[in-house]
C-alpha cells in the first residue's frame, strides 16, 4: 500500500467512525448524546490524526481539534469558564507556541509511519485497554449519582465560583500565588534559554559590556 491509499483508508475510516458515534450518541441520549459524541470524536480523532500525520503542521492543527473537542466536553460538563480558558490558553497560547516551534524548525518528511507507529500503538494500546477495562469494570467513583440532565438548576456559570475560589483565604489563594511564581519562573527560564546572543554561540569570546 502506498502512502496515498493509506491516507484515504485512514480518513475514510475516521469519517465512518464519526457517523457511527454521532448516530450512536443520538440514539442513546438524544441531542446531548450527539453533542458528546461529536466532541469526543473531535478529541480522540484529533489525537489520532496528530499521531498519524507526518507533517508537523497538520499534526498541530489536529491537536487544535483535540483541544476544541475538550473545550466542548467542558461545556457539556457545565464548566463554561473552563471551556473558555481551554480555548484561550490552549488554542490561543500553547498551540500558538507549538506552531512557532514548528515554524522555527524545518519540516521533517523522512518520518517512517506505519512500521513504526502501529506496533507501538498496538502494544501500548492493548496494554492500556487491558488496564482500562479492568479499571472500568471495577471502579467505584465518588459520585453522587446525579445524571447530566437531571439537575434541577441547570447549567451554572462557574466563573464566579472560580474567581472567589482563587482569592478566598481558605481555598486556593496559596495555589494561585504559587501558580504566579510558576509562571514567573517559566517566563524567566524560557526567556533566558531561548534568548540568543553572540556570546552564547561563541562562549570563549564574550565581549565586554555586552549585556541584556
Amino acid at each position: 500500500m502506498d502512502q496515498q491509499t493509506l491516507q484515504r483508508i485512514f480518513y475514510g475510516a475516521l469519517g465512518l467512525i464519526l457517523l457511527v458515534v454521532l448516530g450512536g450518541g443520538l440514539a442513546a441520549a438524544g441531542w446531548p448524546g450527539a453533542a458528546f459524541a461529536l466532541f469526543a470524536f473531535m478529541t480522540l480523532g484529533g489525537g489520532l490524526v496528530c499521531i498519524w500525520e507526518r507533517s508537523v503542521v497538520r499534526s498541530a492543527f489536529a491537536l487544535m481539534s483535540t483541544f476544541m473537542g475538550i473545550a466542548g466536553l467542558f461545556i457539556l460538563l457545565e464548566s463554561d469558564f473552563l471551556a473558555m480558558a481551554q480555548i484561550l490558553i490552549y488554542v490561543g497560547g500553547i498551540l500558538a507556541l507549538l506552531l512557532f516551534g514548528v515554524m522555527l524548525t524545518p519540516p521533517d518528511m523522512s518520518e517512517r509511519k506505519l512500521g513504526r507507529v502501529l506496533p507501538g500503538l498496538g502494544i501500548v494500546g492493548l496494554a492500556i485497554l487491558w488496564v482500562g477495562l479492568k479499571v472500568a469494570a471495577t471502579a467505584k467513583w465518588a459520585v453522587q449519582g446525579a445524571p447530566l440532565d437531571g439537575r434541577a438548576d441547570g447549567p451554572i456559570s462557574s466563573a464566579e465560583a472560580i474567581g472567589v475560589g482563587f482569592l478566598a483565604v481558605d481555598q486556593y489563594v496559596v495555589a494561585f500565588e504559587l501558580a504566579a511564581i510558576v509562571l514567573t519562573v517559566a517566563l524567566v527560564a524560557a526567556v533566558y534559554i531561548a534568548r540568543r546572543r553572540l556570546s552564547d554561540v561563541q562562549p570563549s569570546r564574550t565581549r565586554a559590556g555586552e549585556v541584556g
Binding site: 511564581i181 510558576v182 519562573v185 527560564a189 562562549p203
Partner: peptide
C-alpha cells in the same frame, strides 16, 4: 497534604530544574 499544591510545587521545581540543566545554553 493537598495534591493540587503538591503538583504545583513539584512542577515549579521541575520547570526550574529543566532550565537549570540546560543553563549552559551554548553547550
Amino acid at each position: 497534604n493537598n495534591l493540587l499544591l503538591l503538583m504545583l510545587g513539584l512542577e515549579l521545581l521541575s520547570l526550574a530544574s529543566y532550565s537549570l540543566a540546560g543553563f549552559h545554553k551554548g553547550d
